[in-house]
Amino acid sequence: MADRGGMVERRGAGLWLTHLGLILGVAFIAFPIWLAFVASTVSQPEIVRPPMPLLPGDQMWENYSKALTSGVNAPVALMLANSMVMAIGISLGKIAISLLSAFAIVYFRFPFRRVFFWLIFLTLMLPVEVRIVPTYEVIANFGMLNSYSGLILPLVASATATFLFRQFFMTVPDELAEAARVDGAGPMRFFFDILLPMSRTNIAALFVILFIYGWNQYLWPLLITTDPSMNTIVMGIKQMFPSGDDIADWPVIMATSILAMIPPVLVVIGMQKLFIRGLVESEK
């Protein structure tokens, strides 16, 4: 970046205007979340008599502990745990099966290799939203409604990760496999001792992206978790709104929204480099 100091960058008033523009942008992005945070720290009467305050109140502890321990339909702590299982299950499941199949497709010549490759490739085309009714029927027939496997398995069936690993394995020098073969190491030994350690960064970057993807699922958990104790937090928020004319318990709902954001936001900020890498790689 050091060589980028040139004559076209702004100085003086222009520089301040640039900062001002960016700060306004950040404010626009952050405002809805700030408001949700404020709402999660005040009491219900302060919200239902508008306008609500714009600075945090003193009810934070009450609201969050009420949300976590009792919630509206199910304790939010339970929904957080469900989301965690689902997000980690999807990430690890997808990474594991994709690593294995990418390894097979790149490092072996076996019958129907091309057919398998294209079958997996086709799954790139069809998001779960498009095949919800029949997928729901499959899960129902297996008795997997309201279960973790029902939440996880259909979302594991997609090829993005397989592609990523295939691309990466293609760039691994042939000499490594050759050396392993000369040394008499079997393919699985090569896979575990050489290929897997080399893929570490790619695996981590993909994990970040998949974790967020899994955590933020909405439609699928909405369909198959009819039992509140299996709700994930992202879909559970909407379930906290009363039907009919009752007034929603806004402080608890907003506390839940904040709790639903914390894990994926921490992942993005804490692993920014891996996150950006994963985003760019998975879109290639």
Binding site: S101, A104, F108, P111, F116, I120, T135, A159, P187
Partner: peptide, 28 residues
């Protein structure tokens, strides 16, 4: 450079093929 074998690679792609078949191709 590739490894020899037919059953091992088939076994390796099996999990993905099964999941894709059951939760993707069948519903589609």
């Amino acid at each position: 450079v590739t490894f020899k074998g037919i059953w091992l690679p088939l076994l390796l792609v099996l999990p993905q093929i099964v999941i894709t078949a059951v939760f993707f191709f069948y519903p589609a």
